[in-house]
Design a protein around this nucleic acid. Structure first.
Length: 458
RNA sequence: GGAGGGGUGGCCGAGUGGUUGAAGGCGGCAGUCUUGAAAACUGUUAGGCGCGCAAGUGUCUCGGGGGUUCGAAUCCCUCCCCCUCCGCCA
């Protein structure tokens, strides 16, 4: 059973936009109580994020909802009393009289219920637009430039030749085929060939297994999901424009494994003893990138389809802070293991994601293009997604339930790690060395060599 | 794709319009008994939303939503999910 009022496709689409009565459980998103009780804090949060959301409209709808609710519930209490009396009444005339009275009450209840449904639908639509609250540790900033470098690990490799960007290396090694891919599928598409395809496969397996060793359980997940899943993790309703959708079946293609991972325990009450749950999954990621038209068009830095390995945790509220540290440290270890130069950025209030309260980005140095590539964003979402997905836990037998905290992070986006590896490990002769940790996954191959003139007509 | 059968509380399972939020059983918890345990017995055992300082109280939930009715787990519509047979298929 789903507790997100009004968000079922059945209620949203099949039933012409009607929603159920009653705000249940998480009420999807930010706690309405918080908006009700501390609207100024909410406004301050929105200000820090550099965004807006309809605080006043929420307050109005919320007040209206509770007024109607009080009235209609009194009427229903009367109705329930009368219903019992009718059931017991032996005398026919008495029965008729009671039923006559109730007929009138029923009409009033219907009218109020209808109004209530409308108000709740509006309230839900409004509150859905609010981003997560910010963690106290998230610094205030006004844009990407205000993200703070927490630490930088490794020195950029020094070259005694002019390093090339990954698209040139990939094309000349015939392991990256952009033209052929775009010919069939449009811009921002690519194909990997031969050792390129093997290298990506090796990376994915390496990362998944490293995650497993660190205690993250593997999952294979749906890559097509319903609207509710997109709502749960926060992609909908605000970021519909960035999602691919199958119009006929009404499925969405996942933009990240975070989406199906969040929905794994939807509507569940977990036993506190099982937390934290550590999960990892590899999925393709599909993104329309409508918002970034014209940006990062070269190479495979920003594409419509790429592979990503994700790490994810469901924790108690007390456990999420250390879980975030743990995930960052783990992901850093993976980058170090690949021999890449990287830095850790703390995202400021204006650059942090919709669902996140506290986030750190991992960026690797790509010496060919001479830029930092974001390969991971690791976030503590607190109870924001748990509310939307209605995921709770019971600390102890007999205790009442609370929402879990969720954390997600990439480990990593393959295209960018792939690009960084090509650029970091390139040689003057055009070949690319394979990082030590991946060699055994590529048949002990130690480098990808430039193709010889013969036998390369295709 | 065609035809049919199902979805009730942690689990099993009753219940076809009126004290049914829901019998009974199992499991869980507490207690009695016992040196202790088991057995037996007794009690207890869902989650939202609203009002309330609280105690408490009202309301909603029998896959989801809507409808009929004074009143729905029970009748109708619709969606989702599970199962069986046929067809197709990696």
């Amino acid at each position: 059973m789903c507790g997100c009022w009004g968000w079922h496709r059945s209620s949203e689409r099949r039933s012409q936009g009607k929603v159920s009565l009653g705000l249940s459980r998480g009420a999807g998103m930010l706690s309405i109580q918080w908006i009700r009780e501390a609207p100024d804090e909410v406004r301050a949060m929105l200000e820090r994020r550099g965004t807006t959301a309809p605080v006043d409209a929420v307050l109005e709808r919320d007040a209206e909802r509770r007024t109607i609710l009080t009235e209609v519930e009194h009427l229903k209490a009367d109705r329930n009393q009368a219903g019992k009396a009718i059931g017991k009444a032996k005398d026919q005339a008495e029965r008729e009289s009671l039923i006559g009275t109730q007929r009138e009450v029923a009409g009033r209840i219907d009218a109020l219920d209808e109004r209530l449904r409308a108000v709740e639908a509006e309230l839900h639509a409004l509150v859905s637009q609010f981003p997560n609250r910010l963690h106290a540790d998230t610094p205030t900033g006004s844009g990407e430039a205000d993200n703070q470098v927490v630490r930088s690990i490794g020195l950029p490799r020094a070259f005694d030749f002019e390093p090339k960007p990954h698209w040139e290396i990939g094309e000349s090694l015939r392991i990256l085929e952009i033209e052929r891919a775009t010919a069939m599928a449009g811009s921002r598409m690519f194909a990997l060939r031969g050792q390129g395809a093997r290298l990506q496969r090796a990376l994915i397996n390496h990362l998944l297994e490293q995650n497993e060793e660190a205690g993250y359980e593997s999952w294979y997940l749906p890559n097509l999901v319903r609207e509710e899943a997109m709502f749960a993790s926060g992609q909908l309703p605000k970021f519909r424009d960035n999602l691919y959708r199958d119009a006929e079946e009404d499925y969405f293609l996942v933009p990240t494994a975070e989406v199906p991972l969040t929905s794994l325990h939807r509507d569940e009450i977990l036993d506190g003893a099982v937390l934290p749950l550590r999960y990892t999954a590899h999925t393709p990621c599909f993104r329309r990138e409508k918002m970034s038209a014209g940006r990062d068009v070269r190479g495979i830095k920003r594409v419509h389809q790429f592979e990503k390995v994700e790490i994810y945790q469901f924790t108690t509220p007390e456990g999420s802070a250390s879980a975030l540290e743990e995930m960052i440290a783990h992901a850093e270890g993976l980058l170090a293991g690949l021999g890449l130069t990287y830095r850790v950025l703390q995202l400021c209030s204006a650059d942090i994601g919709f669902s996140a309260a506290l986030s750190f980005d991992l960026e690797v140095w790509a010496p060919g293009a001479a830029e930092w590539l974001e390969v991971s964003s690791i976030s503590n979402c607190l109870d924001f997604q748990a509310r939307r997905a209605n995921i709770r836990y019971r600390p102890e037998e007999g205790k009442s339930t609370s929402f879990v905290h969720t954390l997600n992070g990439s480990s990593f986006g393959m295209t960018r790690v792939f690009a960084a590896i090509l650029e970091t490990y390139q040689r003057q002769d055009g070949g690319v060395d394979i990082p030590d940790v991946l060699q055994h996954r590529m048949g002990r191959l130690m480098q990808i060599e430039a193709p010889t003139a013969a036998g390369t007509s295709a």
